[in-house]
């Protein structure tokens, strides 16, 4: 989970997201209440935040400009359409300039998501994946895929069947007891408001599904390299720098050794949950060789 601390100063939030504490300094105390409400489940004690993010107000950025990103050593400098800033992975600091309070949440979320994508594999044995996660009977199921693959559809179908951690960004972390899923407050910017519930939660990971639209339900277990490739192709940011890509691959290798990865063909009906329960509960077929006497 992300932790934001609101106690250090009136214009400071400290967020705890997936165990990474991030102190966010705001340019105006007036920006605080809306953000505190939005991230209420992720607010934390900011006394020892791992990351410092300084937000500044720059009305000139209202004029949209072309996006670009530049990497120099541990530092990434970026300009998005309506905000700009930098992230320093070594110093664990970032800054973002935002044209107005109305743009604060989207700019902050994109900056923090980028920060976590780069920092988690390098420093926290984790990955921020472009994915939806659903919790059934206390176990977490990750549904990954690029835009349009069906992540928000899965979240919509979950009502009454599963609890959704987030429909867009989920952290997978390698813990001593096994891989676990952690929610983030970074839901899709176009997600239906009625779906959004920003909750801080952590559950053991049961399985990973790579989403594919299909005429009917089908499940195919992926070989390790195919699984890694499928996860990588949902995520471009990590592949921008060799150091981050190497760290990502190291974490991914351990992840796929600990959790099964399937390609899930599905059609958008709630029969999905019955199908998955049936697959999960299906007894394993013994290898015929094992049935023969020694």
């Amino acid at each position: 989970m992300i932790v934001v601390n609101q106690t250090a100063a009136p214009a400071c939030l400290t967020l705890a997201i997936a165990g990474v504490s991030i102190a966010v300094d705001l340019p105006d105390p007036g920006w605080g209440p809306t953000l505190r409400e939005r991230y209420a489940a992720f607010l934390a004690d900011g006394s020892a935040a791992a990351w410092q993010v300084a937000v500044t107000h720059d009305p000139r950025l209202e004029v949209a400009a072309g996006a670009w990103m530049r990497h120099e050593g541990p530092r990434t400098t970026f300009r998005m359409t309506e905000f700009e800033g930098w992230i320093d992975l070594a110093a664990r600091q970032a800054a973002v300039s935002i044209p107005s309070e109305a743009r604060a949440a989207s700019a902050l979320e994109r900056t923090l998501a980028y920060l976590l994508m780069q920092a988690l594999p390098r420093q926290h044995d984790g990955l921020l994946l472009h994915a939806t996660a659903a919790v059934i009977a206390g176990r977490g199921y990750l549904f990954a895929g690029p835009s349009g693959a069906g992540k928000t559809t899965i979240a919509r179908l979950a009502a009454g069947h599963a609890d959704v951690l987030c429909d867009e960004n989920i952290v997978v972390r390698l813990a001593a007891a096994g891989p676990e899923l952690l929610s983030t407050p970074f839901w899709g910017m176009s997600s239906p408001p009625e779906l959004i519930r920003r909750v801080a939660a952590r559950v053991p990971l049961a399985a990973i599904y790579i989403l594919a639209h299909a005429a009917d339900f089908r499940l195919e277990r992926l070989a390790p390299a195919q699984a890694v490739l499928a996860l990588l192709t949902t995520e471009k940011v990590t592949t921008e720098r060799p150091e981050s890509a190497a760290a990502w691959l190291t974490v991914a290798e351990r992840l796929i050794a600990a959790a099964p990865v399937y390609r899930l063909g599905f059609r958008p009906t709630t029969e999905l949950w019955d199908f998955l329960r049936g697959e999960v509960n299906r007894p394993l077929t013994p290898d015929p060789c094992l049935l023969e006497p020694p």
Binding site: A223, V228, T239, P242, A246, I256
Partner: peptide
């Protein structure tokens, strides 16, 4: 400037 790993005999190469 690449990163790679071999998984069960198949190499995945990332070329930033």
């Amino acid at each position: 400037h690449t990163a790679s790993r071999v998984f069960s005999g198949e190499a995945v190469i990332v070329s930033p």
